[in-house]
Design a protein around this nucleic acid. Structure first.
Length: 371
RNA sequence: GGGUAGGUGCCGGAGCGGUCAAACGGAACAGACUGUAAAUCUGUCGGCUUCUAGCCUACGGGGGUUCGAGUCCCUCCCUACCCA
């Protein structure tokens, strides 16, 4: 299911191959986010063209709309959204965090209030496995409790206990639910920035046994040094022959840091959301168009700012995206200011292409022994 | 020529004697977003300075009433609509 092709000699970075029911994906990879069955503004063929291999969707949001009946009728999300490559589905654990005002959590599960109409929705580990089965996900995530990192240790500790309990239940239920054509099931490590909690969480999950291990609850406001520490503690506990997935991460330098600490999979809303909000990621390249990941290797460009009104140059003439190859910064600045929908498409296309180029560059550096 | 309604900051538009450098929108200028309730949210937005404060200039022009006027009175100019 997961095979390491190359292991770096100077870091924990590795290149691997993850086999899923919808084909192989080379790690490390970055997943664009299609929360409601679509990466905002982009079509599947566009995603393929810029280098997407796996897409992330969301059980909670799909559960509400369009609902599982619809997804079952079309035989899964792949058919529904026209994406025949792997799909990973988040469990709704993140909504425990992001919709904290509208949910109640007990050991049984989470009682959500729908953000659309206030209807109550109950998520248990079993409900979530069932839902992901109907969605037809290739990589299922267990339901977890993603706490805010600010919470005191006792709160985090309880979240870890609950997450482990739910992981066990998920594992058991998963085994019952799938016989042939089994997708992958990932457990999720919690524990905030506390060494003992992170270690306990990881050890208990490893005992239960999963196809891959996710690291949750990171990059939610904690200091980057703390993130790094957590990853290095876990790199020795999580089995190295299984894929590791840092959920919700992150800024480009955070991804580079994590890969060096042995992480294989990433996802984040930043490239797409920030694109929509006027922020573009751009590599700093030398005259030969090379990127040096050891330095400050990129900048964030606020394309709507007045300085780009009269900037008729390409954003990045070495970028392979449709926008960079065909349009000027001044044009995108104009589209942004007047609110043309095309703005969001071009900006999203560019930022995602940046992330995929970043992943290609990282792999290239691993192959060359530079990372 | 007569009548009516108006003229407020970059634009639209509140205000009807003091708490008004003037609500609220928009534009403009900047910032934030990390397993997406996000084409969202936040801040600044007359000028100057010793900038959690002070000073100056401002509500069509001019004059007046008042301790005090964007707000009341007179007059002039302008705009829109209606009647001749």
């Amino acid at each position: 299911m997961f095979k390491i092709i190359q292991q770096s000699k100077i870091s924990k970075a590795r290149i691997g191959k993850l086999k899923t029911l919808h084909g192989m994906a080379e790690t490390p990879f970055f997943m664009p986010i299609a929360t409601r069955g679509a990466v905002k503004n982009l079509s599947p063929d566009e995603l393929k063209n810029i280098g997407a291999s796996v897409v992330l969707s969301n059980t909670f949001h799909l559960f509400i709309k369009p609902g599982l009946d619809i997804l079952k009728k079309v035989k899964g999300l792949h058919n529904f959204m026209g994406w025949q490559a792997p799909i990973l589905t988040d469990s709704g654990g993140y909504q425990v965090f992001s919709l904290a005002k509208n949910r109640k959590i007990t050991d049984e599960g989470v009682e959500f209030k729908s953000p659309y109409d206030g209807a109550s929705i109950f998520f248990s580990p079993e409900v979530v496995i069932d839902a992901q089965k109907k969605i037809g996900s290739d990589i299922l995530m267990v339901l977890d409790e993603c706490p805010s990192f600010i919470k005191d240790k006792s709160v985090i500790e309880r979240a870890v206990e609950r997450t482990t309990l739910w992981a066990k239940r998920s594992r058991v239920y998963f085994k019952k639910s799938f016989r042939a054509k089994k997708p992958l099931l990932f457990g999720i490590v919690q524990g905030g920035i506390f060494k003992d909690l992170r270690e306990k969480s990881a050890q208990d999950l490893v005992k239960i046994g999963f196809d891959g291990y996710a690291i949750g609850g990171l990059c939610l406001g904690e200091d980057n040094q703390e993130t790094k520490k957590v990853l290095s503690w876990l790199s020795d506990i999580l089995p190295s022959d299984k894929p590791r997935y840092q959920m919700g991460t992150g800024f480009p330098e955070q991804i580079v840091q994590a890969v060096k600490l042995g992480v294989d999979m990433f996802d984040c809303v930043l490239p797409t959301r920030n694109a929509r909000h006027g922020e573009l990621f751009v590599f700093k390249r030398n005259h030969k168009s090379e990127i040096n990941l050891d330095k400050n290797f990129y900048e964030k460009v606020k394309i709507g700012n007045s300085q780009f009104k009269n900037d008729f140059k390409s954003l990045d003439k070495f970028c392979a995206c449709y926008f960079c190859k065909n349009f000027t910064k001044a044009y995108l600045n104009h589209l942004f200011r007047v609110g043309e929908p095309l703005y969001q498409r071009l900006a999203s296309l560019h930022n995602l292409r940046f992330y995929f180029e970043l992943m290609e560059k990282i792999k290239d550096d691993i192959r060359k022994g530079k990372v």
